[in-house]
Structure formats: C-alpha cells, structure tokens
Design a protein around this nucleic acid. Sequence first.
DNA 1: TGAATGATGCGCT
DNA 2: GCGCATCATTCAT
Length: 194
Amino acid sequence: MVPRIKKLPRSFYNRPTLKVAADLIGKYIVFESPAGTMSARIVEVEAYIGQGDPACHAARGKTKRNAVMFGKPGFTYVYFIYGMYYCLNFVTEREGFPAAVLLRAAEPVEGIDLMKKHSPRQKEHRLLAGPGKFCKTFGLTRTHNGLDLTGHTIYLEDRQGEPGNVVTTPRIGINHGAELKWRFLDADSSAVSK
DNA sequence: TGAATGATGCGCT
DNA sequence: GCGCATCATTCAT
C-alpha cells in the first residue's frame, strides 16, 4: 500500500536541477516550527545551477556563505539579502556540484493563523507570494540554513496533487544569466510573485 | 498602474 | 565601498 502523502526522499533532490525545479511545482512544503506546523503548496521556483551559472551564488567558488550548496542534496540553503529578507533554497545534485532551487512562492494550506501573525498585513493568498515574504511569513532565518530536508523540521511532500499550468520564464531580479528561462511557476495560481 | 525609491546588513573586492 | 536571487511605499501619469 503506497501512502497517498509521501515525504520526498533525498533521491528526489539528487537529480538535474531543472528537473527538480519543474517537479517541485504542486508539491507541498511543511515546516514544523516550535509555534506550530505550517504547510503550503509550491507554485513558483527558480533554478541556480553550478559555477557556470553567473547568477548562482556559487559562481565564484565556495565560501562560508554558500558552502551548503556544495554539500549533499536535500538540504536547505537560507541566505540573507537586502538587509532585511531571507530566501529559502533546496540544495540539488550530487555532493561537490553546487546547485539549488529557490522557493519563490506558495499557497498557504495549514497554519494560516500562525502565518498571519508573522505577516499581519497580507491578504491570505499573498502571504507567501515572493521569496522574502515566504521566509518572513514562515519565520525562517539563518538558523534554518543547512537543515536536512529528509528530517522532521522542514520537508517536502508529494500529496498527489496537480501541478497546474506550469510555464517557464526568465529568472527575477538578476543581472547575469537573465536570458535563461529557469523560473517555473503555475500560471493559474494567484499566489505567484509579481 | 507603473516607475522610482528607501530600508538595511552582509559578503566580497 | 559596492552590489545584492526583495518588498512596501511614494510619486507621477
């Protein structure tokens, strides 16, 4: 008997990053925070792939900040940006190959009251509509960097849902590698970033 | 409704 | 110092 809800195993992340990114649309992210459990349906991601990708943080080699991208797949990479926001990534591909998928937007599912405590001014379908907003609303910070996605704090689930109307576009907010269509989103969702 | 801007910290040159 | 995988607000049309 195959369970209807299945936690994504490390083998899911240990694949070409573009495949992982495309497959993430319609999956669910679960965060078991001390204040309660939150979950959401992923509707927008971007791929950052290796030292040949000029927009990837690892493009200029390994540093203390991006070290987790060089490690095993299936871990979180959380970084601080613009003085006030965090962004959450999922590390992909084999150990030694730095790549990750940035989580840009999701639709709130469970723990919505808790999400609203973190972001009181947002309309419900906009609570997670952007990478900075996602981390603010989930309460994620640098302390959540390098966590094992096959563990029990943050993990992804396949709930056998439809991915929706998946399209690809150039990535947002970058200056180099902007011609690559490495952003994946469900165009029918009202929770994608603007 | 779209463009410009300020907030703000940190990693890298 | 500069630039950054952002976002909310302000200002102009």
